[in-house]
């Protein structure tokens, strides 16, 4: 099957001035192509700029040099076709689960009845039909996450950017949500870019993993994950890939130490 490039990141830099007025690169020369319908993880230690990269891809920040293009069009500002899921969800506390899910349709002029139906369908898809009329503060972390996913899916985006969306969940819920994300991704065939610092999460989810390293933030290695789906976390293959990624990850960190010495 021919792969079409959905997102192209080309020669992208993000520079900041530090407290002493020196220029430093938070992101240096990022080149990346994300294919249509793939699930790609940006994996890196905290502070490597993976969230910044994601925010630039989603149009929330501007690069200092280079560009991001989706379907050939340069990304300059956020767009409803490219949804970002934030780390702490950003659910509207004054709206119910259903109300949150409806939001995107509502502000884009979908008539009330139609949007209720569509939103309910998505609430059902993420398994929250019993909580449709609850407010976010009455939900567990996992359920809040599901609501955020339903809200993003409601506007039928082409790309979903996920910024460590499972970071705040406990270990068991986290595993469950990883399965859910794969299920939804297989069902909806969206292009997903997922930021994480958890190696096993990256291996479980991704088609490809972009390993990032620190100072300056850059992509040090792009790795294919040669595993079929559904993936078995306790399988030998899984462990092998995970070890491989871990070794790469270590190496990128060691480089980092050398860099300082």
């Amino acid at each position: 099957m021919e792969k079409t490039v959905k997102i192209k990141v080309d020669g992208l830099y993000k520079t900041y001035l530090d407290a002493r007025g020196r220029v430093y690169d938070a992101l240096k020369k990022i080149d990346l192509e994300v294919y249509e319908g793939e699930l790609l993880c940006l994996l890196g230690p905290s502070g490597c700029g993976k969230t910044t990269l994601l925010r630039i891809m989603a149009g929330f920040e501007q690069p200092s040099r280079g560009y991001v293009a989706i379907d050939g069009g340069i990304v300059e500002k956020p767009h409803v076709k490219y949804m970002i899921l934030f780390q702490n969800y950003g659910l509207f506390p004054w709206r119910t689960v259903l109300g949150n899910t409806e939001y995107g349709l509502e502000v884009n002029g979908v008539p009330a009845r139609q949007r209720k139906e569509k939103a309910m369908e998505l609430v059902r898809l993420v398994g929250l039909e019993k909580f449709a009329h609850n407010h976010p503060h009455q939900l567990s972390g996992g359920m809040q996450q599901r609501t955020a996913v339903a809200r993003a899916l409601a506007v039928d985006p082409e790309v979903i950017f996920m910024d460590e969306p499972l970071g705040a969940l406990d270990a068991m819920t986290r595993l469950k949500m990883q399965e859910e994300i794969v299920r939804l991704w297989q069902d909806k065939r969206k292009t997903i870019v997922f930021v994480t610092h958890d190696i096993s999460e990256a291996v479980y989810l991704s088609d490809r993993i972009a390993i990032m390293s620190l100072s300056p933030g850059r992509i040090s290695k792009l790795v294919d994950v040669p595993l079929g789906r559904p993936r078995n976390r306790s399988g030998a293959d899984f462990a092998r890939v995970q070890d491989f990624i871990y070794a790469e990850f270590e190496m990128s960190i060691r480089e980092e130490i050398d860099y300082y010495i």
Binding site: F60, P78, V155
Partner: peptide, 12 residues
């Protein structure tokens, strides 16, 4: 974050 979400959904 509420404003960012609103912006993402293309809120006027």
């Amino acid at each position: 974050i509420y404003l960012q979400v609103a912006l993402n959904f293309g809120t006027r």
